[in-house]
Amino acid sequence: MRVRVLVRLKPGILDVQGAAVQRALAGLGFDDVRELRVGKLVEVDVDAPSAERARARVDEMCRRLLANTILEDYTIEAEAAERLAPPGAVR
């Protein structure tokens, strides 16, 4: 079961990396960007009998390692495999 985890800095925590990227975009003429925040995408292929079970396992993974919940929030999305990577992508 393929599961996608999005890890993001919590709202209110200053994202200096996002701010730098936003400034770079402004330098390219994209001065209409109101806010930009950079996060992480983790793709997990987990051996599980059901989507619920896969989600529960990945939730545990997030709490124990994948996210630092002092700084970060995470969301878990169970997805069909073809949605995770473009056809022909090297894994």
């Binding site: 200096v16 990396q17 730098a20 002092i70 700084l71």
Partner: peptide, 17 residues
């Protein structure tokens, strides 16, 4: 030590980058 929970809080990217 912070990541392991032996000390409170967390360390993140320097504000100056």
């Amino acid at each position: 030590l912070c990541e392991a929970g032996l000390l409170p809080g967390a360390l993140m990217r320097n504000e100056c980058l």
